[in-house]
Design a protein around this nucleic acid. Structure first.
Lengths: 201, 201, 201, 201
DNA sequence: GATGAATGAGCATTCATTCAT
DNA sequence: CATGAATGAATGCTCATTCAT
C-alpha cells in the first residue's frame, strides 16, 4: 500500500474509534486520550492525523451523514412510473434507514445528538445537510408530478422537507427502542400511506 | 410577594438569562460567570438558586419545551367535528409554531441544538418529550378516527409521530431563514394537505 | 486597605514569588505551578492576577529594571560642579550597583539572563531599557561638558553607552563572584579612573 | 574525504542550520524539526549527529564565540609599542567587531540573547567566556604598562573587563540599528578616546 | 442573602526523543 | 545511514464549585 493510503487508512481507523467513543460518552465528555486508548495508540499519534479535537468531530459527523446518504442514494428518484412503484420506493428507503439505525444505534447518537451542541459551525453544517436531503426528496416529488401520479399543485420544496421530517422521526423511533422488524414495517407503511393518500377517511 | 415567590422569581430571572446566553454562545461555551454577568449579579449568586450548571440547562430546556407545549395546548384535540375543522386546526398549530420560532430564534437554538449534546440524561429527556408530543398528536388522530373523518385503519401512534416530524421540520425551516409569513403559510398548508389527502394525484 | 490596593498587593506578592523562582530555575524551566507553590496558593489564583505566563515575566523584569533605575536615580546628573565631584558620583553609583547585585544575586540573574531568551518582544524591550539608561548617562556627560570639566569634543551619546557598558560589566563581576567589598571598590575606582583620565601613562 | 571528516562536515551543516533558525525564532521556539527542515533532512537525522537539543545550542553558541574570538585574535596584544599604535589597534578591533555584527545580526542574536535563558550551565559557560575575553584584554593592558605607554598603576584585571564592557556595548549598538559605517567609526573613536585619555577636559 | 476570591481537577496540545524499517 | 511514525511526559490554562466575609 502506498504511503498516502496508509495515512488515509490510519485516519479512517481513528475516525472509527472516535465515532465509537463519541457515541458512547458524547463529544464533550470524550478526551483525545479516550480515542487513542480505544485504538490502543498513544494520544500523541492522534495529532499526527488530525489538527485538533474539533477537526475529528467534523469527520465523524461526515462519516455518519455519508452512511445515511448511501442508503438514500441506493434508490433512484426518476425510477418510479406509477404511484405503486413510488410507494414501494418510499417503503424501501424507510425500511433501509430504519435498519441502518437499528443495526447501529451509535449512528443515531452521532447524527441526532452529538452533531448538535458542538459549535455554531457544525450546527450550520447540519442545517445544510438537511437541505441536501431536502433536495434529494424534491427530485422524487418532481418525478411523481411530471409522471402525473402526484398532484400537480404539490408544493414540492416544502413537502419534500416535511416528508424528510417524517423519515427522521422514524429514524429516531428506530433508535429509541431496539425496535423489532415489525415496528419498522409499521413505520414505513404508515409513512407511505400518509404520503400517498393522507389520513382522510 | 411571599418569600418563596421571590425565590421563584429569581430562579426565573436566572433561567431567562441562561436561556439567552446558552442560545447565543452555546451551553458548553457558556460559563456560569456569563450568565451572572448577563443578569448583573455575582456568579456566586447563581449557586444560591441552582445546584450546578447541569441543573440550569434542564430548566432552560424545560422552559423552551413549555413554550412550545403552550402553543400546542391552545387547540383542543377533541374539538374538530369534520375534516375541514381538523385541517383548520392543523394549519393554526403549524402557523403558531412557525411564528413562535420566527419571533424567537433563540427558542429554536435551545430546542434543536443546545438540548442535544449536553449529556445522556438530557437526550433521554428530549426523547421522552418527543413521546409526550406524540401522545398529544395521537389524541387528534383518535378524535378524527372516532368521528369518522380519518381513516379507521390509521396506525395512530406511528402516524402521530410522523406528523410531528413534519411539524418539527417546519419549525426548523422557520428558524433557518428569517422566513416571512408567506413561507409560514406555504408550510402549514402543505403539511395539512399531506395529512389530509396525501400527495397522490 | 481598599479593594484595588489588595489586588495590587497580591500582584506584587506573586511577582516577588515569580522573581524568586525565575531566578532559581529559569523562566522556561518554571511552571506556573512552581510560582503558586512558592506562594502557597493554588495555581488557579495566579490567573486571577495575570493573564498568562508571558504577562508575569514582563512584570518581573520591570521590577528588576526599576530596582536598578532607583539606584541610578539616587544621584542627580546636574549636581557635579567639578571633575572631582563627578568622579565621586561615578564611584557612588558604581558601588551602589555593585552592592545591589551582591546583596541580591537573583536580581542579576533576572536582569542579565532571564530577560533574554524569552521572546523577541522582551529582548526588544531590554534594548529600549538600555537606551533609557544611555539617556541618563548622557545627562551626566552633558553636565560635565557644559560645566567645562569634561572635554568639549566628547561624543556624548556614544560615550554614555560605552560607560554604561563598563558599569554593566562591573555588575556582572559583582554577580559572578560573591565579590567582597574590596573588589567593589577596585571596580568603582578603576572605572572612574578610566572615565576621568583614561589609561594613558 | 575520510569518514570522520564527513561526519564533522555534517555536524557543521546542522550547526549552521541551527544557528540560523535559533537566531530567527529563538532557542525555545525552535523545534528539532525546524532545524531539520531548514536543512532538508529528516529530523531523525539530527539525532545521529547530536545527542539532544541542549547539545546543539552549545555548539551554536561556541560557533558564535569563535567567530568573535577570531576577530579579536587578528590583532596581537604585544605588538603595540606606542600609545598611538595601541589606539590604532583598539580602533581596528572595534571596527572589525562592529562590522561583524552589522554583517551578521544573527550572530548578535545568538551571542547576546539566545545564549542566555537556556539553562544554568550555558549561562555559566558564557560567564567563563567573558573571563577569557577579559584575559585577552589584560594582555593588551599588560603590554601597554610594560612598554610604559599605559599607567603603571592601572588595575589591569578590572580595567580589562571594563573595556570589554564598552566593546560589548558597541556591539549591541551595532546590532540595534542597522548602523552605517559612520556610527561604527564614531564608536571606535569614542571608545579609544576614553581608553587612552578619558573624558576629562 | 450576595459576593467574588480561591481552588484544583481536568484537558488539549506540543515536541524531544526513540527505534523499526 | 536516513527516516519519520509513534510516543507520552509535561504544562499552560479554564472554569465549575466552594465558602469566608
Amino acid at each position: 500500500m502506498a504511503r498516502e493510503d496508509l495515512v488515509e487508512q490510519r485516519r479512517r481507523d481513528i475516525t472509527l474509534a472516535a465515532f465509537k467513543v463519541f457515541a458512547q460518552r458524547g463529544y464533550h465528555e470524550t478526551g483525545i486520550a479516550d480515542i487513542a486508548r480505544e485504538l490502543g495508540v498513544g494520544h500523541g499519534t492522534f495529532y499526527r492525523y488530525f489538527a485538533n479535537k474539533r477537526d475529528i468531530v467534523a469527520r465523524v459527523v461526515d462519516m455518519a451523514v455519508e452512511r445515511i446518504a448511501e442508503v438514500v442514494a441506493s434508490e433512484s428518484p426518476e425510477l418510479a412510473q406509477t404511484v405503486e412503484e413510488y410507494r414501494a420506493q418510499v417503503e424501501r428507503i424507510g425500511r433501509a434507514l430504519f435498519d441502518l439505525f437499528i443495526d447501529d444505534p451509535q449512528l443515531a447518537r452521532i447524527f441526532f445528538f452529538e452533531s448538535a451542541g458542538v459549535d455554531r459551525e457544525l450546527s450550520e453544517h447540519m442545517l445544510e445537510t438537511n437541505e441536501v436531503f431536502g433536495a434529494v426528496t424534491e427530485r422524487y416529488l418532481e418525478n411523481g408530478v411530471s409522471k402525473g401520479f402526484l398532484r400537480a399543485d404539490l408544493d414540492i420544496p416544502v413537502t419534500a422537507r416535511a416528508i424528510n421530517g417524517m423519515i427522521f422521526a422514524g429514524a429516531l423511533a428506530a433508535f429509541r427502542s431496539g425496535s423489532p422488524a415489525s415496528v419498522r414495517d409499521r413505520w414505513s407503511r404508515a409513512v407511505a400511506d400518509l404520503i400517498i393518500g393522507g389520513a382522510r377517511a
